[in-house]
Nucleic acid binder design. Sequence first.
DNA 1: CGATGCATGTAATTCGTTACATGATTCG
DNA 2: CGAATCATGTAACGAATTACATGCATCG
Lengths: 213, 213
Amino acid sequence: MSLPHAILIALLEKSSSGLELTRRFDKSIGYFWSATHQQIYRELGRLEREGQIRAIPAPQPARGKRKEYEVLPAGRAELIRWKAVQDEPKRPRDPLLLRLRASGVVGTEGLEPELRRHLDLHRAQLAAYQEMEKRDFAPPEDTERGRVHHLVLRGGIMMESFWVEWLGEVLAGLPGQPPAGDEAAPGVDYADYADYADEAAPGEGEADRTDTG
Amino acid sequence: MSLPHAILIALLEKSSSGLELTRRFDKSIGYFWSATHQQIYRELGRLEREGQIRAIPAPQPARGKRKEYEVLPAGRAELIRWKAVQDEPKRPRDPLLLRLRASGVVGTEGLEPELRRHLDLHRAQLAAYQEMEKRDFAPPEDTERGRVHHLVLRGGIMMESFWVEWLGEVLAGLPGQPPAGDEAAPGVDYADYADYADEAAPGEGEADRTDTG
DNA sequence: CGATGCATGTAATTCGTTACATGATTCG
DNA sequence: CGAATCATGTAACGAATTACATGCATCG
């Protein structure tokens, strides 16, 4: 539940209207926390009701009219509180990895173009980040915020590098049919293999479970 | 919307009961697609109603009794269809990155222990994956499924390596206060800076878009 | 004054999370 | 028998996604 905090951060960096926030969530902030305008308006309403932000009074407020929000002391306090909260790293949930794994049971047909497409997208995003780094972050960082933003951008760069590298490895390793043999290699049973990989638990080597063996 | 497909994959690899699936989703499959038993039971019900899977007939079915599911032809067909579907890479949504960015506006106090904790967790996960790789995947891969599982595991390894590397960089760069100066460096305005970083859009510099990739 | 784009919202649905409920099995 | 454990579920809620609705501003 971090969307309200993402909004507080964005507003502390610069007071904005709902649509401006939406635009900013398509750029820098959105590079690691995305949100649609519907989510944003809903949260803005909630945060205002709770007294964490307020709409800067306008001369003639009206429905379809621009409304700029700023963070109130309660909002800043909430963000400081939340900043130090502990929370477990979430397991990734990536459909592409799932599609790859599906290839293990129903074949790889049709997957390769999608892998290539993603590789291109990640390459482009990586190039964009590197361009930003070159342009916006010169070596001697002189503000706390500058250092932090640079570290976050480094995260984006390294994350995209990971994708580019891994997708390259997959594309190199996937279409390579077995050098001379067939699909079903001798002596290996599919179901057993699945069992094997599933049961190979990482740190549980000491406990010897007698029931399943 | 990939949970049903994750379940189809798991069941094709090995027919299982709901609880067995839950356990398997804590291991290999869960390393890139997590699910709780409540989600799993709900989906199993839905998939069965839709004729994609069936419960293997038991001698005496009863409520609290083990029920094993297997995939029906319709389910396999659906998985084959879904496997080739195009879909955009999702933007990451990571609270830790958000907390780091929050440090840019409300200070870094209290964040460092959390960063260290995550670093340790990712180091442990990386070690576990590397152990699995060493144990389960010898160089000459002889089945399609073996190759695929290995590539997926490589993804896990490289992803965890990314975290370890990046968190190391953050911990090295974060607490380093400005060598001799103060928080607010001369000549830099916070609001302008935020604006600057936000407006630095990636793909819009058509003028001199030097091809870096 | 009507069309277009900008800006702010509502509604419906689906997916994920948390808490709880109940039946079966095993073991002392 | 009763407690602990395994196994299968229900219910309620919150967050995210998708589709739709409405009001203002400008320009011809």
